[in-house]
Measured scan of single mutants.
Amino acid sequence: DETGKFLVLSLYDYQEKSPREVTMKKGDILTLLNSTNKDWWKVEVNGRQGFVPAAYVKFL
């Protein structure tokens, strides 16, 4: 199980638009929880879990 094993870097600021999403700032290091959807990845940032656009992050 690779859940929570990968870190990704936020390339852009992102403001959550729904309760299922999370806000991140450019340069944030996020824990990747799920990347099965090619468009939206589930991450943990600042103690919160939610989705961010996959195009806004990259693997470290």
Rank of each mutant, 00 (worst) to 15 (best):
residue 56 Y to N: 05
residue 4 G to S: 13
residue 17 K to E: 08
residue 15 Q to L: 12
residue 35 S to F: 12
residue 13 D to K: 02
residue 25 K to T: 09
residue 33 L to E: 01
residue 45 V to K: 11
residue 33 L to C: 07
residue 55 A to K: 15
residue 16 E to R: 12
residue 20 R to M: 13
residue 16 E to I: 05
residue 30 L to E: 00
residue 37 N to I: 05
residue 14 Y to V: 02
residue 18 S to V: 04
residue 15 Q to Y: 14
residue 2 E to H: 15
residue 49 Q to A: 11
residue 58 K to A: 14
residue 43 V to T: 00
residue 50 G to C: 03
residue 39 D to N: 12
residue 16 E to Y: 05
residue 58 K to R: 13
residue 24 M to D: 00
residue 49 Q to D: 06
residue 33 L to I: 15
residue 42 K to D: 03
residue 56 Y to D: 02
residue 43 V to M: 01
residue 39 D to H: 15
residue 32 L to N: 00
residue 54 A to K: 07
residue 50 G to Q: 01
residue 20 R to F: 14
residue 44 E to S: 10
residue 56 Y to M: 13
residue 55 A to C: 14
residue 51 F to V: 06
residue 9 L to N: 01
residue 48 R to N: 07
residue 3 T to W: 13
residue 11 L to D: 03
residue 7 L to M: 11
residue 53 P to S: 03
residue 28 D to P: 01
residue 39 D to E: 12
residue 49 Q to G: 06
residue 23 T to F: 04
residue 7 L to Y: 15
residue 17 K to H: 08
residue 28 D to A: 07
residue 38 K to R: 12
residue 41 W to M: 04
residue 17 K to D: 06
residue 22 V to N: 02
residue 43 V to F: 01
residue 42 K to W: 15
residue 29 I to M: 07
residue 4 G to P: 14
residue 1 D to L: 14
residue 33 L to R: 03
residue 58 K to G: 12
residue 29 I to N: 02
residue 45 V to N: 10
residue 45 V to R: 11
residue 43 V to S: 00
residue 52 V to C: 03
residue 39 D to Q: 11
residue 33 L to P: 00
residue 42 K to N: 06
residue 38 K to M: 10
residue 8 V to G: 08
residue 57 V to Y: 03
residue 19 P to F: 10
residue 19 P to L: 09
residue 17 K to N: 10
residue 15 Q to W: 12
residue 59 F to L: 15
residue 25 K to R: 12
residue 24 M to C: 05
residue 7 L to T: 08
residue 47 G to C: 06
residue 7 L to K: 11
residue 16 E to S: 15
residue 48 R to K: 11
residue 22 V to H: 02
residue 52 V to G: 00
residue 37 N to E: 10
residue 27 G to M: 02
residue 24 M to W: 02
residue 9 L to E: 11
residue 23 T to K: 03
residue 51 F to R: 02
residue 36 T to F: 10
residue 54 A to N: 02
residue 43 V to K: 00
residue 31 T to S: 08
residue 12 Y to C: 15
residue 20 R to L: 14
residue 26 K to F: 05
residue 59 F to I: 15
residue 20 R to I: 12
residue 40 W to C: 07
residue 32 L to W: 03
residue 44 E to M: 09
residue 5 K to Y: 13
residue 13 D to N: 08
residue 4 G to H: 14
residue 10 S to Y: 06
residue 48 R to F: 07
residue 51 F to W: 14
residue 1 D to S: 14
residue 32 L to E: 00
residue 45 V to I: 15
residue 50 G to H: 01
residue 43 V to Y: 00
residue 47 G to M: 04
residue 16 E to H: 08
residue 17 K to F: 04
residue 24 M to N: 00
residue 53 P to W: 05
residue 16 E to C: 13
